[in-house]
Each structure stands twice: as C-alpha cells, then as structure tokens.
C-alpha cells in the first residue's frame, strides 16, 4: 500500500510530463463561422444506439460525409435510449464546439430546452427522424410526422382487415409506457381509429423494450381476446415479438400484425404471410439526407421556406421548415428482397 501511492503518483506525473498531444489542443469555440477548407463538425444523435434502424441510418450518414468531404461526422447516442443521457451528450457536444447537431428526438420535453440552449450558443440544430418543438431547431428532416405514422399504421391495419367497414378487436404492444414517441403515435392512432368505428381497441400493453415480453404479451392477448383480429407492434422489438407470437399460435393471416421495422428484421414474417405489409422509409437515404441538410445549414445555404432542397439523390420537397424525404416504402412479399437494411 505504502508503495502504491507514490508509484501511482509517479505514473501520473509521467503522463502529465508528456504534455497534451497535438490533437488535444483544440479549443471549444465552435461559434465562429467556419472558413472555407475547414471541416464542419456534425453530430448525429439517434434515439438509441445499437438498434439496426439507427445503425443503417448512420451508414447512410457516413456515405454522405464521405461524398461531401467537408463533414467531420460523429455518431453517438445512449445505448439504453434514455432521454436524460441524450441530453447530457448534446450538452457535451455544444461544449466541444459542434457546428451542427442533428437530433432524433426521443423526448421533446427533455431535449427541447437543451436544444434551445445549444442554439443560443450559436450551434445549428436540426432534427431528423423524430421532431422536437419548432423553436428548438432550425429544420426537420421529415420522413414522416407522428400523425402520418399513427394514421398510416391504423390505415394499413384497416386495409389488411379488408372490407368496406373493417371490423374486429385490435390491441397495441408498445415500448415502455413512458416512451414519448410511441405515446404521441398512440394519440394519433386512437384519433384515426374513430374513422373505423367497428375496429375496437381492447388493450395497450408495454413490452419494456424486451422482445420476449412483447412475444408473451401478444400471445396472452390472443388468448384473452379470442376474437382479436390485429396487433400493432409499435417498437423495434415489439413488432417481431408480436409477429412471432402470431406465427407460433398458428394464426398467421388470421391475426394481422403491423408496425414499423426494418425489412431485415421482418423478412421471414413477410415471406410466410404473418405480416402482410411493413411500412418504412429508406433509412440509409434518411441518414444521407440528414447530413446533406446539416452541411447546407452549416453553410447557411438552406433556410426554412425554401422551395426545394437539391440533394445528391435528387430534388427534395420542402414544406415550411421541413425537408421531406419522400413517400415511405411499403414492403410486401413481392419487393422485400430488393432491400437490405
């Protein structure tokens, strides 16, 4: 013990003696307008890191950074998806001198004030994938609004159920009960369900981001409500969990499952008929476009209410302060093999 303290101290001194390395001398000022030739520091924040959906978005973003050449891209986010952890990261990036922070907003209540503070300090903020309040960001790279998602899910279920008046009991398996995005989608889903009076929502169950739980809950729902006709799996693990439950119960085609997921996660269920259609956009394109918009915003080349945004992947429509990715893709048995993400 007696030897340990001096030894460690000596080691510490040795390290200090070497002094800061050259790449460590960067200053924290990112507020000045960058001059030509300088790279823009762009931070890309997913709702949760380690999820295939966001991983494929990040791949698209990296492609864009390579293609554009003047972007220094960092992709990081909380592996547990906690909004508080995301907020802490954003605060750190501001201090590190970010030029642009692109946020997929897990919880507008928590992140909104943080983003506003970032803007006050001269950092450009855009949102992508999931929007924050309008005054906390400059632009939103919009692949779908919560309303479009909520309505889209219910409409897809109605279409799959078929008939002039879609009939039957349906249930929702969500992420956590406290998940802000899912709760917002559910508000719109319930609103849209009014259009189909014979579709009756019987239960909403949390799956706590646990696929096993989503699977078991869906199985129990089918037994507790023998007339159940459809399950919405509205998180990345709730959807495959619910589909697996339907498949194992031998009810493929009788109980319909729908939700948002990447084609890779759902391929087998679409092929065997458990899932008729999966609604999603091209995630790589979303990541790509986000970085392009980030660059344009950093240069001051893109303002809200521009008529359109010229992307390397074609002209993108603008709607106020939203840059639209374009229509979502409906993956079915016939086309799913063309997509790999």
């Amino acid at each position: 013990m007696k030897a340990l303290v001096p030894a460690l101290l000596a080691a510490a001194l040795l390290v200090v003696g070497c002094g800061p390395t050259s790449d460590g001398t960067k200053t924290a000022s990112g507020t000045g307008a960058p001059t030509a030739g300088k790279k823009f520091k762009v931070y890309l924040l997913p709702k949760q890191k380690g999820v295939p959906y966001f991983t494929s978005c990040a791949e698209g973003a990296e492609d864009a950074a390579k293609e554009l050449g003047d972007i220094e891209l960092t992709y990081d986010g909380p592996t547990d998806g906690k909004p508080e952890a995301a907020a802490e990261m954003i605060e750190k990036w501001v201090l590190k001198g970010a030029d642009v922070i692109a946020v997929s907003c897990n919880d507008p209540q928590v992140l909104g004030p943080v983003l506003k503070k970032a803007r006050d300090q001269g950092v450009k903020v855009i949102t992508w994938d999931a929007d924050a309040s309008q005054d906390s960001r400059e632009l939103f790279v919009n692949q779908a609004t919560p309303q479009q998602i909520g309505y889209g899910l219910v409409d897809a279920m109605a279409k799959d159920l078929g008939g002039a008046e879609p009939t039957g009991q349906v249930a929702i398996v969500t992420a956590r009960l406290t998940a802000a995005n899912q709760n917002e989608w559910m508000v719109h889903m319930k609103e849209r369900l009014k259009k189909y009076p014979k579709m009756q929502l019987v239960d909403v169950k949390p799956s706590n981001e646990d696929q096993k739980l989503a699977f078991e809950v869906s199985r129990d729902l089918m037994k507790a409500y023998p007339d159940l006709k459809g399950i919405f799996g509205i998180s990345s693990v709730a959807f495959p969990g619910a589909a697996e439950a339907v498949k194992q119960a031998g009810k493929s085609g009788k109980v319909l499952v729908t939700g948002l997921a990447t084609p890779n996660d759902m391929r087998s269920y679409v092929k065997d008929g458990t899932v008729k259609s999966v609604l999603l956009w091209n995630t790589k394109d979303l990541g790509f476009l986000t970085i392009e918009v980030a660059e344009a915003v950093a240069k001051g080349a893109l303002k809200p209410n521009a008529p359109y945004f010229m992307s390397h992947r074609g002209e993108k429509k603008m709607q106020g302060d939203n840059v639209l990715l374009g229509d979502p893709i409906v993956f079915t048995k016939d086309n799913i093999d063309q997509f790999n993400f």
Partner: peptide
C-alpha cells in the same frame, strides 16, 4: 486528470 489533460485538455 493526468490522462484527461494529455488526451483532451479542453
């Protein structure tokens, strides 16, 4: 602190 100062004094 020593390691942090060496890697990233900011």
């Amino acid at each position: 602190v020593a390691v942090a100062w060496r890697l990233d004094p900011t």
